[in-house]
Simulated assay, not measured.
Amino acid sequence: MKVKDINEFVNNIDENDYMKYVDILSKDERKSVQKIAVKLSKKLDALRKEEERIHRIQEFERDCYENGYIYIGGIDEAGRGPLAGPVVAAVVVFDKDVDIKYINDSKKLSEEKRNELFETIKNEALDYGIGIVDNDKIDDINILNATYLAMKKAINNLKNKPDCLLIDAVTIPNIDIHQKGIIKGDSKSISIAAASILAKVTRDKLMYEYDDKYSEYGFSKHKGYGTKQHYEAIEAHGITPIHRRSFLKSIL
């Protein structure tokens, strides 16, 4: 095969075949092909590191299984800080042998990767639920209580009730399910990380819809957060029905 064809072939091989083709290509006498082998070897190293990371971020789930829990949900939210739009929570329940590479805190992923994983998580999860609380309810009960409400809605949207919940940073009041709050849980627990992706992508989709309705505010860019562009739009056009008045008391 020509070097160009080899390079194209290698770019499309399955990850499980990396080692096989590293061995084959490294024996080729052509230096250009050996360089391809080195590049593939680096991809193999990166893949192994990712597999180790995915194993590591299942530690909390493994601990739950060892303590007798069998239906473990990870919970996270998106949208506590913005000036506009809802707060969204998600809960994800995985099988104990789940293996989805590149799941991570949604903030550490590109939008393209989040959208890709959004579909994979929904397809691979044993169960998932999403809860949404709008800006009017946020103003009525405050953002912390609205976040708890969104989490409870997400749990209620599951097919089955979890017997254990892993939650990013908080514990939910007034629920009869064992729960564990984990600081920076979206980077330490695979199910919380997956929930962070579902919550973030769901909320972003809503903000894109609001951008179509209120195009002068730039919601597709800042997703409702307090950027310079957003404050300037509020000053020029006033607030919309999706703005959180309780977050804007200083300028209303």
Rank of each mutant, 00 (worst) to 15 (best):
H178F: 06
T147E: 02
I234A: 07
I130E: 07
K43R: 15
Y65I: 14
A194S: 08
E77V: 13
D186G: 10
A46L: 15
V133F: 03
K213S: 00
S191R: 02
D45S: 04
I57Q: 08
T240Q: 05
T171N: 03
F118S: 02
I24V: 15
V98S: 04
K184R: 14
V91Y: 07
G79W: 14
K184T: 09
L117G: 05
K184A: 13
E232W: 01
Y231D: 07
R80A: 14
K205A: 12
N123V: 11
V10T: 07
F94H: 07
L165A: 03
I72S: 13
A154T: 04
P162V: 02
K213F: 03
G226P: 09
K35C: 05
S189N: 00
D28L: 05
N145R: 13
M19P: 00
H222C: 07
D139R: 03
S220Y: 12
E216K: 08
V98K: 00
H243D: 06
A84M: 06
I239W: 04
A169S: 13
N67G: 04
S196M: 01
S106V: 07
E124W: 00
V33N: 07
Y214P: 06
I182C: 10
E59Y: 04
K43S: 12
N142A: 04
I100Y: 00
V98Y: 03
D212S: 15
F9H: 05
G181W: 06
H55M: 12
K35N: 15
K152A: 02
E111I: 14
